[in-house]
């Protein structure tokens, strides 16, 4: 969760890795990509922290063992002013799930596309772009995907998008969820 927690030097990192298939997998990958930090979370779950500028190189390396890109999850950390982009990878041969985490600033949210590694990333990137406004350089189909253009411009899954006030502005009178005293909202 917290990046600072994992900022330990490499020697400690290596000793922390357990002697299991997950530990060996992480060790092999870290050996090829020294800029990344890796750890084992539990059985069949491993985790990598990668700086945003090297994410494409790292995923290209990782795609040899992790054949499938299951999802690109974005978490909006509003207080820190950062988007956390989590590439969820699955290795069919090893049976291990990997979180590849990277952080990018909210104001200048740009990442290279991974469509050339996994063509399915096109859909995930379109979705992440639509809901958070992250620009994936090289993806030709960014734009309104699931939403209408009006909602698309707001990037609704950002934490600073206030849903209640938006719904009130659009639907106005229809939006009636007051209690009997007409003072409080009822959920």
């Amino acid at each position: 969760m917290d990046m600072n927690e994992n900022k330990t030097n490499e020697k400690v990192e290596e000793t922390r890795l357990p002697d299991t298939k997950e530990g060996k997998l992480v060790k092999a990958l870290i050996g090829k990509a020294p800029y990344a930090e890796g750890s084992v979370r539990r059985e069949r779950r491993v985790e990598f922290h990668v700086p945003a500028e090297r994410i494409h190189d790292f995923l290209e390396l990782a795609s040899e063992t992790f054949e499938m890109l299951m999802q690109i999850s974005v978490v909006d950390w509003l207080k820190e002013g950062e988007f956390e982009v989590v590439y969820q990878l699955w290795s069919v041969s090893e049976g291990v799930h990997a979180f590849v985490r990277t952080r990018i600033p909210r104001e200048d949210a740009k990442l290279p596309t991974v469509m050339d590694i996994w063509p399915v990333a096109e859909t995930y990137e379109r979705e992440a772009h639509e809901f958070f406004g992250i620009i994936f350089k090289g993806n030709p189909r960014l734009g309104p995907f699931l939403l209408e253009p009006r909602e698309y411009e707001k990037h609704p899954l950002r934490k600073d998008f206030n849903m209640l006030s938006y719904v009130k502005a659009i639907y106005g009178d229809d939006f009636d969820r007051y209690d009997e005293s007409k003072t409080n909202y009822v959920i």
């Binding site: 299951m70 999802q71 999850s73 969820q88 399915v120 096109e122 859909t123 979705e127």
Partner: peptide
């Protein structure tokens, strides 16, 4: 965040 299988089956595939 939910990953539905049709996200890949229903779009690019």
């Amino acid at each position: 965040h939910v990953r539905g299988p049709s996200q890949s089956h229903g779009v690019t595939v």
